[in-house]
Design a protein around this nucleic acid. Structure first.
Length: 588
DNA sequence: GCCGTTTTCGGCCCGACTGTTTTCAGTCG
């Protein structure tokens, strides 16, 4: 059976192979496929069941692409793709993953030197044959040789988990901020959009002295290898092979620059198109008046460039937060009905997944953890140490009762914050939970999560979660899939069924702010929002240093278009407690 | 390949850096 994923994979391959065939990634045909692919991806329906006329109704999808989708669904193959596959076998396509080797050069080395794979390319480089080709010289040959060596380490497809990239980016930003010549700094790209994995780190600096900034970057201790070093742009590789691009712009163009470098590419294209429609020109330096066609590009009057907000406003758009900039309807919404009141960090009034050293993996005391939460001004806090089923980390019923007393003793010193005695329940392989029903009902608040048995079938995992959701002692589901981004996939579930259950039992779906998790993922959050499933954004802190994760959880929720009013920990204390307690009324 | 009250052909987002040129092509984001 053909799935949506199969359709997307078919188009992705078609894009790669057509770029090779056309000899340009900018080919209009390639861009048309890309646009169609985006349209299909963001369509909420099951695209494999759509008729031809329904498919062509999707933005960017024309007759040709629609026919290919139908062809794949009906026959399992696409003739056009098969022909391209025959022309460009996988080992040749692999060459296109080498940075610096574009379609034009590939075509050249294939036709002139008969190179079909990485091995033959390596031989040709060793024999100094590449430098004999028109447009290539010894320098290009050496550059490609180096890129071949790094293949697999820094290939175009390499992605780094956000948990590895964000701390490095924050460190680099702090170092650049400390430079006296720096006015402003912002990391951009997929990192700012809170993608789960990122290709490289983009940093934009505003300064009146770009050469000082560039020199500083070149000298930085993180630089293992320089890739590009110009007057306003320097790219380098870290020892871990992660590429960092640093650009310098003048302070009055900072907004336009970070808008541009944050992307996404398709979001930028949508903004540019909107600019053109209004007789304006948008580039990385600003939004310009293009109504007078006699003026040189540099003479066009600047309409907005200092801040992103001014540019969005001049384009008659509500400000679009970076995590939403994926061209999945945000430009249309911002220019029409609006984005609604999206969740912000400042809305959060409490953390509801929070460990102390009562958990085997907790590292700060109850007093320390409560003090940190109070310092953030939280109105309520749920201390949710592990239940007994998580053998090494959990506590017995007796230990939990002693823990309750200890929490209560310390909480009296914080009259402005309600400290709840909670528990992170473990969802067993069949959906069973810790302790007995009566004991679980004693907790003020619970979060139930999966910590093991990751490889059961989809129906089994789905039933497992729904059993936990249906339990009246459960307030929320923690880190939905249990994934560690880039390291371990989470459990596979039927999202529709699970979200349906969450909505039905009024159980909140957690957005876990730990960078390794960011679970539920933003696309799942968006589905949850469509179904009006309640959300809760938590840090899952195990140490006093981890409370800052709330920001990442909020950004992930934003990326899923979460409105403030669906997030239960934005409620005032009374309203939150009313919601938290109402499930237990089913028990009596 | 897609699209359209300046429609059915002729457009399609824009610029930096590099290496190879001696005014530009290729690649990348």
């Amino acid at each position: 059976m053909t799935t949506k994923r199969d359709v997307m994979a078919m188009l992705s391959e078609l894009i790669t192979l057509t770029a090779l065939d056309e000899g340009s990634p900018q080919s209009f045909k390639v861009r048309a496929y890309e646009k169609a692919s985006l349209g299909l991806e963001s369509d909420g329906r099951d695209i494999t069941t759509l008729k031809l006329s329904e498919l062509t109704g999707i933005s960017g999808v024309g007759k040709a692409t629609a026919s290919k989708v139908r062809e794949l669904v009906e026959s399992g193959t696409v003739e056009k793709l098969e022909k391209l596959r025959a022309k460009y076998p996988p080992e040749f396509v692999e060459l296109s993953r080498i940075p610096g080797l574009g379609p034009k050069t590939l075509k050249l080395v294939r036709s002139e030197l008969g190179i079909e794979n990485v091995e033959q390319l390596t031989e040709a480089i060793a024999a100094e044959k590449l430098r004999t080709l028109p447009g290539l010289g010894a320098t290009s040959e050496a550059k490609i040789a180096k890129a071949v060596q790094r293949l697999g380490l820094t290939g175009k497809d390499r992605r780094t988990p956000i948990a590895d990239a964000l701390p490095l980016a924050e460190r680099l930003v702090a170092d650049l901020e400390a430079l006296p010549e720096t006015v402003e700094v912002q990391f951009c790209g997929s990192l700012r959009r809170m993608s789960e994995t990122i290709g490289d780190i983009d940093i934009t600096v505003s300064s009146l002295e770009p050469s000082v900034v560039m020199d500083f970057v070149v000298q930085h201790s993180e630089v293992a290898d320089l890739v590009v070093n110009g007057e306003t742009k320097t790219s380098f590789l870290t020892r871990a092979g992660l590429q960092v691009d640093v650009r310098v712009v003048s302070p009055d163009q900072f907004g336009a620059a970070i808008l541009y470098f944050t992307g996404s590419k398709v979001h930028n294209i949508a903004l540019r198109q909107r600019a053109i429609d209004r007789k304006m020109l948008l580039n990385e330096y600003g939004l310009m008046d293009a109504s007078n066609e006699d003026l040189e590009a540099s003479e066009r009057p600047v309409i907005a460039s200092k801040t992103e907000a001014e540019i969005y406003a001049a384009l008659e758009l509500e400000f679009i937060p970076a995590p939403l900039r994926e061209a999945t309807g945000e430009v249309e919404a911002a220019g029409g009905d609006g984005l609604g009141e999206l969740i912000q960090r400042s809305h959060i009034r409490g953390d509801l997944h929070y460990h102390t050293d009562q958990s085997g993996d907790g590292r700060s005391t109850v007093a320390e953890m409560i003090a940190e939460a109070a310092a953030l001004g939280y109105e309520y806090l749920a201390i949710t140490d592990h239940g007994v089923d998580l053998a090494i980390n959990g506590s017995t019923a007796e230990e939990m009762l002693e823990h309750r007393d200890r929490i209560a003793e310390i909480a009296v010193d914080y009259p402005d914050m309600t400290v709840l005695w909670g528990c992170e329940l473990n969802i067993g392989p069949d959906g069973g939970l810790d302790y007995d029903d009566e004991f679980r009902a004693l907790f003020d608040y619970t979060v139930a999560s999966v910590h093991s048995h990751f490889d059961q079938s989809i129906p089994k995992q789905t039933d497992r979660l729904i059993a936990a959701i249906a339990d009246p002692t459960v307030n929320s589901i923690g880190h939905l899939t249990g994934r560690y981004i880039g390291r371990r996939p989470g459990i596979e579930i039927d999202y529709d069924a699970v979200l349906e259950a969450l909505a039905h039992y009024d159980v909140a779906l957690e957005v876990n702010g730990a960078l390794q998790r960011l679970d539920a993922a933003s696309d799942v959050v968006r589905k949850a929002v469509e179904r009006q499933v309640k959300l809760v954004i938590n840090t899952d802190s195990h140490h006093t240093s981890e409370l800052g994760r709330m920001e990442y959880g909020v950004l992930t929720a934003q990326r899923g278009w979460a409105p403030k009013d669906l997030v239960v920990n934005t409620r005032d204390r009374a309203s939150f407690m009313e919601w938290a307690n109402h499930r237990k009324s089913r028990l009596s």
